[in-house]
Amino acid sequence: VTLFVALYDYEARTEDDLSAHKGEKFQILNSSEGDWWEARSLTTGETGYIPSNYVAPV
């Protein structure tokens, strides 16, 4: 399991995006899409895309 933590708040801009709150942890499901990674929030269980530069490894 690849875990990352949000460094900043991010507000989803499309229905495919996933909002993130600073300190929230995510499981990365797919990081092969360049700057946008598919992730699952460990807080809400929701999945979507987050900007890779907004997260760091735990």
Score class of each variant (00 low, 15 high):
W36S: 07
E15F: 10
D35A: 10
R13W: 07
W37H: 03
F26M: 05
S31E: 08
Y49W: 14
W36Q: 07
Q27P: 01
A20L: 15
N30F: 07
R40D: 00
V1A: 13
E11M: 10
A39K: 00
T44D: 02
A39W: 04
K25L: 15
E33T: 12
G48F: 05
L29W: 05
T43D: 11
R40S: 04
A56R: 09
Q27S: 07
G45C: 11
T47L: 07
P57F: 06
V58S: 06
D35T: 09
K22C: 10
L3P: 06
K22R: 11
A56G: 09
A56L: 07
S31N: 12
E15K: 13
E15A: 13
W37P: 01
G45R: 03
Y54K: 08
Y54C: 15
R13F: 08
Y54T: 11
S41F: 03
T43S: 12
W36H: 08
T14I: 06
S52Q: 07
S31L: 09
I50G: 00
Y54R: 08
I28G: 02
N53C: 15
L3K: 05
Y54S: 12
Y8M: 11
N53K: 13
F26C: 03
T44I: 01
T44P: 01
L3M: 10
S52V: 07
D16H: 15
R13D: 07
E38G: 03
W36K: 14
N53F: 11
F26L: 09
D35V: 09
L29N: 05
L29C: 07
D35L: 12
R13Y: 07
T44Y: 03
Y49Q: 07
G23T: 01
G45D: 04
P57G: 04
A12S: 09
F26A: 00
R40P: 00
G34T: 12
I28H: 01
E33G: 14
I28A: 02
A39H: 00
A6N: 02
S41L: 02
L7T: 04
G23I: 00
S19D: 08
S31V: 11
T47G: 02
P51Q: 06
E24R: 00
Y54P: 01
D16Q: 14
L7Q: 04
E11D: 09
V5D: 04
G48E: 00
E46K: 15
Y54G: 08
L3I: 15
D9C: 10
E33Q: 14
Y8R: 07
G48N: 00
